[in-house]
Simulated assay, not measured.
Amino acid sequence: MKALKLAGAAILGTAIALAGTSLASAQEFTFKLHQMLPATSPAQKNMLEPWVKQVEENSGGRVKIEIYPAMSLGGTPPELVQQARDGVVDLIWTVNGYTPGQFPRTEVYELPGVFLNDIKATNLAMYDMFESDLKDDYKGLEVMWLHVHAGQALMSVDKEVRSPADTNGMKIRIPNRTGAWVIEALGAAPVAMPVPEVPSALSKKVVDATLLPWEIIPVIKAQEQIDYFIEGNDQTRFGTTTFQVSMNKARWEGLPDDIKKAFRDASGRDWWAKVADAWRGGDDFGIKMATDAGKTHIMLTEEETQGFLDALEPVQQRWIDEVSAKGLDGAGLVSRAKEAIAKNAE
C-alpha cells in the first residue's frame, strides 16, 4: 500500500510538473508594459489590467504581458515614448504631452473648446480619425489605443477661483504644452511636471494649483493638500490630456498574425469606449473622496463657465497658427475633430 501511495505521489508530481512546463511553453510571447503610476492607481486597475487579461485570453495563453508600474524599469515619464521606440520596453502607457511636439495631430483633442466634457465621444473620434489624420504622429510605434481623461479641472490649494481674473499671478502645474497655453491665457504662470512630482510641488508651495482630472485625487492624496476643486458647468473642463498605449514597431511587425489579432481584438472601437467609462467612474470616485474629506467642490455657473471659455478661445487659434506653420492643416484638424466628437456624442 505504501508503495502504491508513493507511486501515486510520483505520478501526481510528474503531472503537475508537466502542466507547469506546458503552461510555460504555451506563453510563447512575453511583453513588458512600462507605465508611470503606482500599481494601485485606477489607470492600472481599471484599464491596463483588464486589457492585459483580454489580450492574454485572446491568445489562448500564448501571450504574457507583465506590467511594470511607477517607472520601475528606470527612467522618467518623459522617456517612455523613446523607451518604446528604442525597444527598451515592448509596450508603454504614457501622456503624449510629456514629449512635446511629437504628437501634433493628436494634440488637437486637448484643446479647450474642442474637448469639453465627453470622454467617450472624444476617444471614439480619435478612433475614427486615426487612419486618416493621426497615424503619422506615431512613427516607430504601433498604437494599441488612444484615450483622454475627464479633462483639466483646477485644483487650488487655498484660493477659491470663479473667474479668469482669480488666477492672475498663480503658479499652476500643467501636464502638456496646451495646458501651458491655457494657463497663460488665464494670466497665470505655467509649471510643467509629470503627475508623480505633483504632491511634492504642492507641499513645498512650488505651485498654487494644478490642472488634473478628479481621477488622480486618491493616487496623489490631493484631498490632503488641496481645498478647492473647480470645474465648469455640466462638468465642462479646460481642455484635456491625450494618452497612448503603444508597442515597439519592430516587435509588432515580428509577431505572427494570430498574435496580432489577439491584441487587435482587445483594442477595438468598443474598447476605446470602455476606457472612457473607466475614466468617468474614476473621476466620480475621486471627487467624492475629496468632498467626503470636507473639501469644496465648485461647479461654476453657466455664466462663469462661459467667462473661462471666452478667455481660452485664443488657445485654439494659437495652436492652429503653430501647427499650420509646420505644414499641418490646423484649422481642418480642429474642424474635423469637433465634427467627429459631435457625431459620437451620446
Rank of each mutant, 00 (worst) to 15 (best):
K2Y: 02
K2G: 06
A26P: 00
Q27N: 06
F29G: 05
T30L: 11
A39D: 07
G61Q: 10
G61L: 09
P69A: 02
T76N: 09
L80F: 14
V95N: 09
P104S: 04
T106E: 06
V108F: 02
E110P: 07
P112Q: 11
G113H: 02
K120M: 07
N123W: 11
M126N: 04
Y127A: 01
E131P: 03
G140T: 13
M144W: 15
V148C: 07
H149E: 15
Q152D: 09
A153W: 02
S156N: 06
D158T: 05
P175Y: 09
A180R: 08
I183H: 03
P190H: 01
A201W: 12
S203C: 04
K205Q: 14
A209L: 12
A209K: 07
K221F: 06
A222R: 02
G232M: 01
Q244H: 08
R251H: 11
R264W: 11
D265M: 10
A266G: 06
A266D: 05
S267R: 05
S267A: 12
D270W: 00
W272Y: 13
K274P: 02
V275G: 07
A276H: 07
G282T: 06
F285E: 15
G286D: 09
M289F: 13
T291P: 11
G294C: 14
G294R: 14
T296P: 02
H297W: 13
E303N: 09
E304K: 02
V323E: 03
K338R: 15
A342Q: 10
K343S: 04
